[in-house]
Each structure stands twice: as C-alpha cells, then as structure tokens.
C-alpha cells in the first residue's frame, strides 16, 4: 500500500476538494436542477474519498444511492419549490445570519471534538474484509429486525400512495388490479373514495 500512497493522497485530497466545492455550489447556483446535481457531484466525490479509504463497498453504494436519490430529488425540488424554478433565478440561501451562525457553531463543535477527544488506541488488527465485518456486526444479532423492517417500509410506501390518490396519473381508479385503467379517461374530478366499478 505504501508504494502508491502519494497518488492515493493526491486523489483523496482531490475528491475532498471537489466534494466541498460542489457542496458550496449548491448555495451559489441559481437553479433547482443545478443545485441538486451539484449536490450529486459532491456525493460522488465523497464516495470516491470512501473508496480511497479502502471502504470499497460503502464508496460504491454511496455513488449508487446518491445519484439515484438526486435524480428523484431533482423532480421534487422542481415540483415543490414553486415559481417555475426552471426559468426563474432562485437562491438556496435563506435567513443568512442565522444559517451562517448555526453552521459556524456546528463546525467548531464538531471540529474541536475531532481534535480534542482522546481517541482510543487500536487493539488487535482490523478484519481483512471490513465490509463483511460491518455486515456481520449489524446483521447477526439484528437479522430478524432487519427482515421485518424491509417489508414494513415497502408496505408503508405502497399504502401511503394508495390512500393519498383516488385516481393517479394513469387513470387507475382504485386498488383493484383486475380492473383495467380507464381508456378513454373519465372526465372531470373524481371524488376521493368514489371508485367507479362500472366498466
């Protein structure tokens, strides 16, 4: 590992700088799409930094999840931030002073914590595959919880969507899958819960 340490160091600092600069750009650029994707680039650089710390699995998962999440989040940002953020210049900065104060305090607290806390000495050697070790630590004793949480989360999402829409974008009226979507679509608003079953 020591042969390539210089290259790794350079790459790590490169990733770190990119992550911070693009993180800052989120508050500089004037469009929702650009802000979201600046954040995505920042996360990808963070994933790169994790890779260079030999945390390959965490690194690639950060890249995978964050790109996917930002692609979806861009839609929500554009949807909820009102006022045609596509074309209207907008700013991600609100209540300047409070935000600046809060972030400075947070930075000082976390930074001094990292510097001042007496870190424990390492005992024993790290396991050869840290990802596997992490997986075992989480999963072995909590497997049942994890297995239960997954389906519950999916069911929550599905039920939440089913309860909140009576009609949905594609004219599927109600939750009965045997019923085909209406074609041609029904005119006018449908009342929530007023499900048409006459075709």
């Amino acid at each position: 590992m020591t042969d390539s340490s210089l290259v790794v160091d350079l790459a790590f600092w490169g990733c770190a700088v990119v992550a911070v600069v693009f993180g800052a750009l989120v508050f500089v650029v004037d469009s929702m799409a650009r802000a979201t994707y600046a954040l995505a680039v920042s996360f990808v650089a963070t994933g790169g930094a994790l890779l260079l710390m030999q945390q390959s699995y965490l690194g690639v998962i950060v890249v995978l999840m964050m790109v996917m999440e930002m692609a979806v989040m861009a839609v929500y940002m554009v949807m909820f931030m009102g006022m045609n953020p596509a074309l209207m210049p907008m700013s991600m900065v609100h209540s300047h002073r409070t935000a600046l104060g809060a972030s400075l305090v947070t930075f000082v607290v976390l930074g001094s914590g990292a510097v001042l806390v007496p870190w424990p000495e390492r005992r024993g050697a790290p396991s050869p595959d840290v990802t596997e070790a992490l997986g075992r630590a989480i999963m072995e004793s909590h497997m049942l919880v994890m297995m239960a949480v997954g389906p519950v989360m999916v069911a929550t999402i599905v039920v939440g969507v089913a309860l909140s829409t009576a009609r949905t974008r594609y004219d599927r009226l109600g939750d009965d899958l045997d019923q085909t979507p209406t074609d041609p679509p029904l005119r006018g608003e449908t009342q929530r819960g007023g499900r048409r079953r006459d075709r």
Binding site: M83, N84, L87, M88, T165, A166, R167, G188, E189
Partner: peptide
C-alpha cells in the same frame, strides 16, 4: 417567456 399560471388539476 411568460411563466405558466397555476391551476388545480383533476385531483
């Protein structure tokens, strides 16, 4: 470009 106006949709 004139911005789009808002209107309630069918839901």
């Amino acid at each position: 470009l004139v911005l789009a106006q808002g209107a309630p949709d069918r839901d």
